[in-house]
Design a protein around this nucleic acid. Structure first.
Lengths: 177, 177
DNA sequence: TAAGATTGACAAATCAATCTTT
DNA sequence: AAAGATTGATTTGTCAATCTTA
């Protein structure tokens, strides 16, 4: 019988310290905890928003379009923000448009591009799903029990990592497929 | 053109504060940063370990088997540790066994169960891939630039969330399919 | 040539149903 | 029944190739 995840990760760290003496294994625990907690959040959110007929990736897209902006977003902009390839985005937009949650319009300034905008149903579904997330998600309950200082630390440190990884993602042109 | 992820998340938080006045929107930023950073780590690690002919989920499995334990792990134990259904694990084990990286043996005490163990090639591939991760991963580079105190904070706080979510996962029997 | 977007082939995850052993 | 594991159908994501416009 395995122990707690923290124990598992600590054991792994000790182990890698032996077989990989050239690396700083103190990086393993934070990397792996973020990686796995991210995965568990994804599984949990997926379960919650599935009741609304969409996936968490769909909700991410709807939520991004929901925020008012100076200029309408094109499909390519969204692909960069969501960290997926344009191929994935294309299929997702097609599905959501077919469900009546958003509309695609040819850009007025560039005949190659589409601009994307939510429909009234898209706004409503997105808001309802997000409300359900705040209400039902395990991670929200856990964060709620955390000291406010810890929550702020997570926002600060993970926010920095988020910015850093996003830069790498854009710079190396990942997700261009 | 969108701004940095931290700006995007802050804008989203302000936005949800308006349309969802009943929830504590201060939970949105930490949740979303963890979720997205986890996803970006997954994409990056996937790219690195793909060179070895396996995915990051495969490496997680190999790494878990790599650690010495009192008793050999069964497929069911592994499914719980890796947070996947037994159906997924079955397919993954089949693929890795076919590649000669692990062996499946009927448990001596329970004729339904299999115990899993790495082959010499499985150990070598896992170690090599993990070495590549430590050497090439963007997240490792970013963590390396972080103050040691911040790294420790991430391990402590995210470790706590990891334990909490794992408990939920096991308690609610997710991943049983 | 490069940017924006789409398509089709393939890999992987989920769910429900099934089989065997306890 | 319930636990351990597998199979098949469906969905989703990734990659490479393609088409149109800039």
């Amino acid at each position: 019988m395995p122990g707690t995840p923290v124990e598992e990760v600590a054991a792994a760290e000790l182990f890698y310290a032996e077989i990989l003496p050239e690396v700083d294994v103190a990086h393993f625990a934070p990397m792996w905890h973020i990686f796995t907690v991210g995965h568990l959040i994804a599984v949990d959110l997926e379960r919650i928003v599935r009741r609304f007929g969409v996936g968490i990736a769909d909700l991410h897209l709807l939520g991004t379009l929901r925020i008012e902006r100076a200029r309408p977003l094109r499909a390519t902009d969204l692909a960069l923000i969501l960290h997926v390839s344009t191929a994935v985005l294309s299929a997702r937009v097609e599905r959501l448009a077919r469900a009546g949650l958003l509309v695609r319009d040819r850009s007025s300034t560039d005949k190659r591009a589409f601009t994307l905008a939510l429909t009234a149903e898209g706004r409503k579904l997105g808001d309802d799903a997000m409300r359900a997330v705040f209400h039902d998600a395990d991670i929200i309950r856990l964060l709620d029990k955390l000291p406010a200082a810890d929550r702020a630390l997570v926002s600060r440190i993970l926010g920095g990592l988020h910015n850093g990884l996003d830069r790498e993602f854009v710079a190396t042109g990942r997700g261009e497929g």
